[in-house]
Design a protein around this nucleic acid. Structure first.
Length: 515
DNA sequence: CGGGTTTGACCCGCGC
DNA sequence: GCGCGGGTCAAACCCG
């Protein structure tokens, strides 16, 4: 194992080296989560990272919702207010804990939803500006770069909040001793304005509304798995073999659950001619292998945005339809997240976290039922986009963006000129929707050309933008949540995870077919 | 020359 | 115990 990581040796040697594997940038105490960095902008991580995005305090809103939910909830009650939607669930009394989880779930979903929508909004705005020239006269959305930056930062906060929120329940899931009641304390939803200074409740990383946002992760392996294992903590990314080969890594460490959580994956299916969709992150290919049952090779990538980033992803074309690229994410980033990577990051993070929290062994039917109900109520627009693989070894959320969307749920069209195209993008994510219009450039139009002219990075332009689009799709998140809920319900009813098979990303999926 | 990719070997878990 | 398949390693190679 002392081989450290490949990255450490090869690429990160300078900073991390075999010896320098002190600790992940974000520290091992908590897990910063991010998915993605704009690789297309590639070569300029610093510059990219420096881009500031706007800011908007969604946490307050989020917190308010939570508070409302909590306040309105008499002991034994769960009241959830979302806009005009009110859900009252009256569990059997012993579900308080689960109520908390539900609230967290709701928060995550809601926040993520908002985040994604904001991002889409931003995309459209950017697109609009780009097309009309940045000086588009007093369009209400046409703001100067600085303001844009602020907005972007806001978005980051949003996503950060999502991640942070999503983290807590996971901890609950992960450890028996989790600080369940700790949720509010460690999440950004404190009284104080969002403050991510180091050492603050969320174990945070100083952000100061600048640059990229570190996200707390749903990935527990580092935080949860073994604080007492310095190597792991320092390692950054854990070779799969580690957990596998350490079955009893601390008999007292709730190994099975931890292992399961650690392995949660989020798979995204999208049509793309490019070899790989760009999700805003920089990746380094470290292997390729022919997978059984698929003539197309599977490529293995590792995030290279930061030393020791544990995130990996697999890219493979679908055997049945080679126009479909299946990207499977695993792990959480341990470094700040650039704006361009936020959509995918938040989506996948939420997906994994929801899945993980939902797969809680102690879950009983009532929780499942409640969750399902919740999901359907809050996310009425969910379609059969998200599915969850019940096949072992690891729970995998599959977001299928290749399928035609169901009858379009009415979405209040933003008063934007090019809204039609965006709508199309959101509706389908099936076609290479105006790929050149969206994507990583959104936060800094001036970088557009540079970004596009950045070859040599494992990133592809068109597919990448398409990915950004799909990741921005509210349905993306909604369907995901619904699918997870559905999955959870199925699991609780005893039909859980009953399959086996080779391709973990495709077989035996329990999908969200209704709603 | 630095950084990324390729590719065969190796390790490990799992099923038979 | 053995074989298979997934995942990773790391030397060799490629490229700008």
């Amino acid at each position: 194992m002392e081989s450290s990581s490949y990255l450490g040796k090869r690429k990160l040697m300078s900073g991390n080296g075999a010896a320098a594997e002190g600790e992940p940038p974000a520290g091992s105490g908590f897990q910063a989560v991010v998915l993605g960095y704009d690789g297309a902008d590639g070569g300029e991580p610093g510059a990219e990272a420096r881009r500031v995005v706007g800011e908007m305090d969604f946490f307050k809103t989020e917190k308010r919702k939570e508070e409302e939910a909590a306040a309105g909830a008499a002991p034994g009650d769960l009241s959830i207010n979302k806009d005009d939607l009110t859900i009252n669930v009256r569990p059997n009394g012993r579900l308080n804990e689960e109520n908390k989880q539900l609230r967290n779930l709701l928060s995550r979903v809601t926040t993520n939803y908002n985040s994604l929508q904001m991002h889409v909004f931003s995309l459209m705005q950017q697109r609009s500006n780009n097309h009309r020239g940045l000086g588009a006269p007093n369009h209400e959305l046409n703001v100067d770069p600085e303001k844009k930056d602020q907005e972007g930062t806001t978005r980051q906060f949003i996503s950060l909040g999502t991640a942070a929120l999503s983290d807590e329940p996971l901890r609950s899931v992960g450890g028996a001793d989790v600080r369940r009641g700790d949720c509010s304390a460690s999440s950004p939803s404190n009284n104080t304005p969002v403050d991510y200074s180091p050492g603050k409740g969320n174990g945070g990383v100083a952000m100061n509304s600048k640059d990229v946002m570190p996200l707390q992760a749903f990935d527990h392996h580092q935080r949860g798995s073994s604080p007492e294992d310095p190597h792991h903590a320092a390692q950054g990314w854990l070779p799969n073999k580690v957990p596998k080969s350490l079955p009893a890594k601390g008999p007292d460490l709730a190994a099975p659950e931890a292992a399961t959580m650690r392995k949660a994956r989020v798979s995204v299916r999208a049509r793309s001619e490019a070899a790989m969709i760009s999700d805003g992150c920089q990746w380094r290919k470290y292997g390729q292998k022919m997978a059984k049952g698929n003539p197309c090779p599977r490529a293995y990538y590792r995030c290279t945005m930061a030393t020791g980033c544990p995130v990996r992803k697999q890219v493979q074309r679908c055997a049945e339809d080679r126009t479909v690229v299946i990207t499977t994410y695993e792990g959480n980033h341990n470094h700040p997240l650039p704006p361009a990577a936020m959509p995918m990051a938040s989506a996948t993070t939420s997906a994994a976290s929801m899945l993980l929290s939902g797969s809680m062994p102690s879950s009983d039917g009532s929780l499942m039922a409640g969750s399902n109900f919740l999901a359907r109520a809050v996310l009425p627009c969910s379609s059969n986009v998200a599915t969850i693989s019940a096949s072992a070894p690891f729970p995998t959320v599959t977001l299928d963006l290749t399928q035609p969307p169901p009858p379009a749920p009415q979405q209040p069209p933003p008063p934007l000129p090019d809204h039609a195209q965006l709508q199309a993008a959101l509706a389908g994510a099936t076609r290479p929707v105006a790929p050149q219009l969206f994507g990583q450039k959104l936060y800094d139009p001036s970088k557009l050309s540079a970004a596009q002219a950045a070859p040599g990075i494992t990133n592809t332009a068109d597919a990448g933008d398409a990915a950004a689009v799909m990741a921005s799709d509210p349905k993306f998140t909604a369907a995901l949540a619904a699918a997870i809920k559905s999955y959870m319900g199925g699991s609780s009813s005893g039909a859980a995870g009953g399959s086996s098979g080779g391709d973990s990303s495709r077989d035996d999926k329990i999908g969200e077919q209704d709603s």
